[in-house]
Design a protein around this nucleic acid. Structure first.
Length: 583
DNA sequence: GCCGTTTTCGGCCCGACTGTTTTCAGTCG
């Protein structure tokens, strides 16, 4: 039944939204499909299975009609309405519709009047000067279309930059702006502030005694390649790395409104405004207009914006339209106290020169202690890792001795000897059980055969989870943000197995992994599984990456209590599965 | 197509920008 993944079902609704849009359907009908696509993409359970049981209507934005379409999708692999519409509107036309500056109306006109059904035919029509003849189109449209097509535009969304790279740039730019003599407040907004997995462009909001001077100073930074506009209200530039940066300079008494607006997300702002309208208030980046008085309230801070609308201030990481408004409503259930970087007291996943790390056990331990951590588990790759970076069993034996000696010597610090053990294709581990038992800590991960079918992959993972000496699962879905899809695996079953067996699940903090993602991490915590935030450090400097794991944990609504390694070693030790098994 | 401390029908966020127009439709965030 779970043959259709939520990602596939969401894509089907998005396609249907595109097709209905081309067909000229009412915009709110189209919007309903887009909202449903988001709900499906973020659902913690298989929506096709839910639909089969008649429970998909519990999801926000799914009614009986869309539930039936999910059933059709589960039973036949397609939705009849989509099949019908595809006959009228070819796939190539959807690509045209997704070109920058284009949408359903323009694409439809090109289709109806010039017979355009692909990017190739569109390019030919441009080259023949046919586009500019159409009513509502002109030479500018034709030119920009041609240059976009020549630059390789194919209607697919622009690539996104990893948060780690984007934040480095954002902090650099914001720092430079703050140093400007005319600057007041300077804050990074947008998805970077929400600590999303990846970022499309940077939004910065500022106040300034001299707005023009501040706006021009952005364009003068060394990292800036070109300036597309700079005035008294802000500036828009592109860096040498290709990142678009948008600076808005605003009056201090609107700083809260503008920062809130440009922090988003879109889903959060739409929900916020819809709720406000029901109370006679209209929210925009300029203020809050009250129907009753005709007055517009301008806010210096975000706290004032949220308070005026009846909410506690909402941490940016939660602003994704995932129930945060209901939780933040004054007099409501309240928002969780989110875990912070400084809450973490131990690190349970780190490599040394014994496998593919850059530093020795001692160097890593001293670096961890210097960062204020109280315990560290050394978890080099196991016997079958390959790439010449594996640790054979006899080498691990020697590592155990070295670790015990080192642990003796380190004051006020607990050094654990563990392993990141490969999970074989059949779910087996590549050290003998008696060796695994003697370790302080074992984290098991999949590093091979990513294309294994879902049922086998799930069974493979669950087998590892059920192993008595596996304390935790590392990077559970194998995804690499923007570059590698997660392997096919039923996370519902994985999470349930982990919760049942007291196996911890990692949020791997490596900025291109952040795996578990925020949705799975939230589901896992709600299912009662204990979460770890691990750096997976391959060098001393990599301990710095832990913060990306904390960001994901916060986006997952996690409290310090739900993250196992916020505990002291004394409190953490008995939570390990091996400690429970021995007890 | 969804949804309900105004509603089972009639609403459904808000404003800027662009290129085309001469008052605005379409797109974008």
């Amino acid at each position: 039944m779970a043959d259709v993944t939520n990602a596939q079902a969401a894509a089907a609704f998005d396609e249907l939204a595109d097709l209905y849009e081309l067909d000229g359907a009412a915009q709110y009908r189209v919007l309903a499909y887009r909202n449903a696509a988001k709900a499906v993409r973020e659902a913690p359970l298989s929506v096709v299975s839910l639909a089969a049981q008649g429970r998909a209507t519990d999801l926000p934005g799914i009614g009986t009609t869309l539930q039936q379409k999910l059933r059709d999708l589960g039973e036949s692999g397609d939705i009849p309405a989509a099949q019908r519409l595809r006959a009228s509107y070819p796939t190539g036309l959807i690509a045209v519709m997704h070109l920058p500056g284009f949408g359903p109306k323009r694409a439809r006109k090109l289709h109806d009047e010039l017979g355009i059904d692909s990017l190739e035919r569109l390019r030919a029509a441009c080259e023949q000067g046919q586009i500019r003849k159409l009513k509502g189109f002109g030479p500018k449209v034709e030119e920009s279309l041609l240059s976009a097509l020549q630059a390789g535009a194919d209607g697919s969304p622009a690539p996104r930059i990893l948060l780690s790279r984007a934040l480095k740039l954002a902090e650099q730019i914001a720092g430079a702006l703050r140093n400007h003599p005319g600057a007041g407040d300077v804050e990074v907004a947008g998805s970077a502030r929400r600590r999303a997995d990846s970022v499309k462009d940077l939004d910065i909001v500022a106040t300034a005694a001299d707005p023009v001077a501040l706006a021009h100073s952005l364009g003068e930074l060394e990292i800036v390649e070109s300036v597309s506009s700079a005035g008294d209200a802000g500036a828009r530039v592109v860096t040498h790395t290709g990142m678009k940066v948008d600076l808005k300079v605003v009056e201090p008494d609107q700083f809260g409104n503008v920062l809130q607006h440009f922090t988003g997300s879109k889903a959060h702002n739409v929900a916020l405004r819809e709720a406000a309208v029901r109370r006679g208030l209209h929210v925009s980046e300029y203020g809050i207009l009250d129907d009753a008085t005709g007055q517009t309230l301008r806010c210096r801070t975000e706290e004032e914006v949220y308070a005026a609308l009846g909410y506690a201030w909402i941490p940016p990481e939660l602003r994704e339209g995932r129930g945060e408004l209901e939780a933040a409503a004054l007099g409501g259930p309240g928002l969780p106290e989110l875990v912070r970087l400084e809450d973490l007291r131990g690190e349970l996943h780190a490599h040394t020169t014994a496998s593919d790390g850059r530093h020795t056990m001692e160097e890593m331990a001293l670096a961890a202690r210097a960062r204020g951590l109280e315990y560290l588990a050394i978890t080099d790759h196991s016997a079958s890792h390959g790439f010449g970076n594996h640790v054979p069993a006899d080498e691990l034996e020697r590592q155990i001795e070295r670790a015990h000696e080192l642990d003796e010597r380190l004051d006020d610090f607990k050094l654990l000897i563990g392993s990141e053990v490969n999970i074989g294709i059949d779910g087996s581990l590549d050290y003998p059980d008696e060796l695994l038992e003697r370790l302080d800590w074992v984290i098991a991960s999949i590093h091979t055969a990513f294309r294994t079918p879902e049922a086998e992959m799930t069974a493979r993972m669950v087998a590892a989870i059920e192993h008595p000496w596996v304390d935790a699962i590392g990077h559970p879905t194998g995804r690499k943000i923007e570059t590698r899809q997660p392997y096919a695996i039923d996370m519902e079953q994985v999470i349930a197995a982990a919760a049942r067996t007291h196996t911890m699940i990692e949020i791997n903090a490596s900025p291109d992994r952040r795996d578990l993602n925020e949705l799975h991490a939230r589901a896992a915590a709600e299912a009662g599984a204990l979460i770890l935030i691990d750096s997976d450090a391959h060098s001393k400097a990599n301990f710095e990456l832990t913060r990306y794991g904390v960001y994901t944990a916060r986006r997952a609504w996690l409290t310090a209590e739900q993250v196992a390694n916020t505990r002291s070693w004394e409190d953490f030790a008995p939570l390990r599965k091996r400690a429970r098994n021995r007890a």
